[in-house]
Nucleic acid binder design. Structure first.
Lengths: 342, 342
DNA sequence: CTGAAAGCGCTAACAC
DNA sequence: GTGTTAGCGCTTTCAG
């Protein structure tokens, strides 16, 4: 490569600190990695020198030598989502408190080769992994075999072997539907999410349960499959609106598809919420930005990220814990997109 | 720590491949790092074995040994921005093509200690850094001293020593203002960005230039300082609307502050665009989501990210290149938030 | 063209 | 308590 000059600026290593303080570099290492049995005075001297020299550890070397790299990986489908951004924010904040760094991986990179990808992540320099991905179980087996610490966010592992944090999808959907019912709506359309995903199923179940509770018959015609994305929300809403007896309210399984639906509604010259009510799920930041502001079921996305980090850090400390599953509460956020039936 | 079981699942290393193929592990290394003078047959054998064994390189070890880690760092203020998301998307996509991974750093972590933070990044396992941060020049000195490859996105370095990619801020602001003028507006309010930032200044200049071109006097009252954030946009717009002679149109220096302004406008019972026109800057995804859809000046955010990656990768190849500065074109996106003056 | 050997910076036994 | 000594997986001279 380029050998004309030193490839890298000479780093400050523990050797330098050792030389400065006159102790061996393993002692320095002990101090820096928080080992307890070091004379207090020595510790101070080392710490002081480290600060003075501007020492920063080399994560790669650390991880190579068998220590922690203080890096965790976050695997997400992509960044174009609002939803992900919120979770990531929570993760980053909590990670900062623990002085961990964040490696970001996106799945759309390796269509079909995800498991190789995940293996490469696990085998690299991250100490653990947070997955916010529509589930493909191959990942998990690989990870479990390696006994690699990971936690799933808003995703469930049928095997029950995984640590997961999610939210009360069923409950949230129930409340959303109930809210519409109490507003007098009887024909309530549902735009589902990707049905392979547990949360999508749970939301559908919650919807059905609410109808049942209020003795409203389930009309399959009113349920149209979506995929959590805006364009599909648009199409799904179009189908709903073209029905012979269109719904007076639509429950979209996430905000993004609600936005698509709003677009479709508006295009038909209908007013929200005067002519038709709409309710979403997630409460991504855009939900309060659209007009009218979207009534939705809030998932505590950032908190979910934070909790995931805490679980993961625990897990890194002690990989042999039994798998935990924590479910955070959703909350109905009433804004301007729903109205009692005239 | 936990020694009850092997800390990590045994990785496949180049040693394994060497054993499999019967060559020395240095030859394997040569093949895997793309060294040219290897017999073709040997290369094939090695490659095949690597694939069969599911080999993945350990980035930490690589970087330690003086090679590339194939990781670049992205330093951003935070993820809560829309703007950043777009840039990051472009970066990630381009990185994927080059098989690089992405380390994400947020600045809000280390208030005041940014330069230590940056040093720790540069000294770690990233091969280069992309900065999308309101500029603090300390960073740069540190990076330059280390001869560490970095590129600035949408930020300019007064010293001219940095590689940067940005957009035609002046031009974009000029066009936005001109557009409003041609719509018949004469009193055009401006909500600025953080004025320490070059792009904010350029947009202000573009605005002034357009007024001058069309012989419209510059009224300082119509310029209120913002900071690129929504709440401030709200406040700034409020000030503008409370003027004795309020503007008939507002140019917000970015979309986020435009959203804030829209809120303020609506709260006063004014209609957009019937009573007042508003135009933004950036064209973040939310811009087409708000109602009415925001007319704005598009920055090719994702493309800026992509270009930044290409520059950075070049720079990593050859760190001694003279600094380049590429400026991408902005484009006026006409949607629904502006109207000819009645 | 390929092998042998010397580290990169750090952690973790193992001695003392 | 602290120093000594092996490597971790990889790249890169230096010899053939």
């Amino acid at each position: 490569m380029n050998k004309s000059m030193p490839r890298k600026y000479r780093q400050v290593t523990i050797m330098d600190i050792a030389r400065e303080t006159g102790v061996s570099y393993s002692t320095v290492s002990r101090v820096l990695s928080g080992f307890e049995f070091v004379k207090d005075e020595t510790r101070q001297r080392v710490l002081e020198a480290a600060r003075r020299l501007g020492y920063v550890a080399h994560a790669g070397a650390r991880s190579l030598a068998g220590g922690k790299a203080n890096i965790i990986g976050l695997l997400v489908p992509g960044l174009d989502n609002g939803y992900i951004g919120e979770v990531a924010r929570g993760i980053d904040e909590e990670l900062a408190r623990a002085s961990y760094d964040l490696m970001l991986y996106t799945t759309h990179r390796q269509r079909g080769k995800e498991s190789v990808y995940v293996r490469s992540i696990a085998n690299g320099l991250t100490d653990g992994l947070i997955l916010v991905v529509p589930l493909v179980t191959d990942y998990l087996r690989e990870l479990q075999v390696q006994r690699f610490p990971y936690v799933l966010v808003d995703q469930s592992d049928p095997s029950g072997q995984s640590n997961v944090v999610d939210a009360t999808n069923w409950q949230g959907a129930y409340e959303a539907t109930e809210y519409l019912i109490k507003l007098g709506h009887r024909r309530i359309g549902l735009i589902t999410g990707m049905m392979q995903i547990a949360s999508a199923q749970e939301r559908l179940e919650g919807y059905r349960a609410a109808l049942t509770s209020y003795n409203i018959g389930f009309d399959p015609e009113l349920v149209v499959q979506g995929d959590f994305w805006e364009p599909t929300g648009y199409q799904a809403a179009s189908i709903l609106l073209d029905l012979e007896h269109p719904p007076t309210a639509i429950f979209a399984s996430n905000d993004l598809s609600a936005f698509g639906a709003m677009e479709a509604i508006r295009e038909r010259g209908l007013r929200i919420p005067a002519d038709i009510s709409i309710i979403g799920f997630d409460d991504i930041p855009q939900a309060s930005l659209v007009y009218p502001k979207l009534t939705t079921v809030r998932q505590p996305l950032d908190e979910m990220g934070r909790v995931a980090v805490r679980m993961l850090l625990d897990l890194i400390e002690d990989p042999d814990q039994p798998a935990r599953h924590v479910t955070l509460a959703t909350q109905l956020i009433v804004r301007d997109s729903c109205q009692a039936i005239g």
